[in-house]
Design a protein around this nucleic acid. Sequence first.
RNA 1: GGAGAGAUGCCAGAGCGGUCGAAUGGGACGGUCUCGAAAACCGUUGUACGGGCAACUGUACCGAGGGUUCGAAUCCCUCUCUCUCCGCCA
Length: 423
Amino acid sequence: MLQVAFIRQHREEVLQRLAVKNFKETELVDDVLGTDDRRKRLKASLDETQAAVKVASREIHVLLKKGEAEEAEHSKNEVATLKQQIGHLTEELQKTEQHLEDSLLRLPNLPHATVPAGTTPDDNEIVRKGGEQPVLSPEALPHWELAKKYDLMDTELGNKITGSGFPVYRGQGARLQRALISYFLDYNITAGYTEYIPPYMVNEASAYGTGQLPDKEAQMYQVTLDNFYLIPTAEVPLTNIYRDVIIPAGTLPVKMTAYTPCFRREAGSYGKEVRGLNRVHQFDKVEIVQIVHPDHSYDVLEEMVAHVEKLLQNLKLPYRVLRLCGGDLSFTSALTYDFEVYSAAQQRWLEVSSVSNFESFQTNRMKIRTKDDHGKSLLLHSLNGSSLALPRIVACLLENNQQPDGIALPEALQAYFGKNLIS
RNA sequence: GGAGAGAUGCCAGAGCGGUCGAAUGGGACGGUCUCGAAAACCGUUGUACGGGCAACUGUACCGAGGGUUCGAAUCCCUCUCUCUCCGCCA
C-alpha cells in the first residue's frame, strides 16, 4: 500500500511511474488525495465535538456534587445533541476511511527507476547469463519421461489421490526433493538466515499483509469453514511474523528462511506449459525474506540476487537473470529479478526464482516499522526471493544431466543425496 | 467436543462508573556518584490520527465489535484468543 503523504508530495511522479506499470485507473490517485482531505476535515470536527462532550460531562459531575440537579439536566440535554452529531460524524468518517483504504488497495506499488517499460515477458531485460547449455543427443528425454524411467514421480497416482498438478514423488525422486531442500536451507543458514517452520495456512489479515488479498484471491486455495488460506509461498507467513511489530534498529536486518510446500490454483493454465513439473498446484520451495532499513534495501536486493545466483552456479545449471519490465512486474513489487534455468530437453527457459524489493508496500500494510534517530516511526523495506523453487530445478537437473547410465548429480548435492547418480 | 477461569502499558501486576493513558514492581534508557563498574539515588520510558515552523496541543486506544450512561478499563451483549480440568488423539 502506498503512503498518502508520499502521493501528496509527489503526485506527478506517482502518475509517471504508474504509467510504467501500465496502470490505467489514474483517477484513483486524485480520488485518494480528495478522500484524504475529507477524512482530515471530518476527523477535526469529530475531535472537537468529542472534546465538548468530555468538558460537559465533567461539568455535570461538578454540578451534581453541588446539588444543582436542574443545571445538570440542562447540560445532559446539550450532550445528547452533541452525541447525535458524533454519531453522524463517526459514520461519515468510517465510510471515508473505508473508501480511502479501498482506493489505496487498488493502487499497485511504484516501479523502481530502473524498471524497463514494456507490457509482456518479451520486454523483460536479460541482465546476464551463466552456466553452460548442454548439447543433448537426439534421444534425450524430457523430465516426465525420465521420471518414469527411473520411477521418481507418479502423476497418475497424484490424479487419483487429489487431482492433476499434485505429483507423488517416490524412492529416489522423494530423496532428491529432500536433498535439495536440505541443501538450500543449509546454504541459506550459512549466509546468516534464520530457519523457520511456519504455518502452511494463514488467516485473512496475513493474506492482506503481503498483498495476496485482495487482488490474487483466485490464486489461493481456501479453507472456507475456518476462513484460512493455504499459503502460495512461505513469504506470506514469514513476513507476517513481523506484522504490527516495531523492530529495534539494532536487530536489523531481519533475515529469515523457510522450506514450505506451496499451493497455487493456477487457474487458466493448460497444455504443454503445464506438462510434468513445469506447473503444478503443490510444490516445494525454500524462501528467503529480509526486512531492512530503507536506505539499504537496494544493496540488499543485489546481495540476494548474488546469493541465489551462486546457488544455481553450485548446481551447475545454465541460467539467466532477468529484470522484469513494468508490465510483468507484480502488483506489490518495485523491482524484481527473475531467474530462469534452461531446460535442455524442452529447449525452453523455466522460471525458478523471483527476487523482489517491495520497499514499504508490504510493510505499510503490515505496519512493520522501526524507530529513526529522532524516535519517529519509520516503515522498513521488505524483500524476498526463492532459493529455490524445486519442481523446475528438478526438471532441469534430470534433463540436462541425463547420461546412458543414469542422471549425474552435481557435486553440491551428492552428500545430501547419498550418491552421485540416479540410476 | 464438554465444564470453568481469564484477556490491562516492554514484562509482571493493581484498578470504587467521574482529571485513569491508567497505581506499584521489574526491565530498558539517561543522569548523579566512581579511575571504571556494581550498588544507591534522581529522571525518562506507548501507539495512531488531527492542528502547529516549533515548544506543544486535541481526539481515540486497557483482546475485537456493539450497547447502557451526562460520563465506561470498570456494567451488559456478541465474537476471538489464552489457561485449567474432562473427553478424543499424532
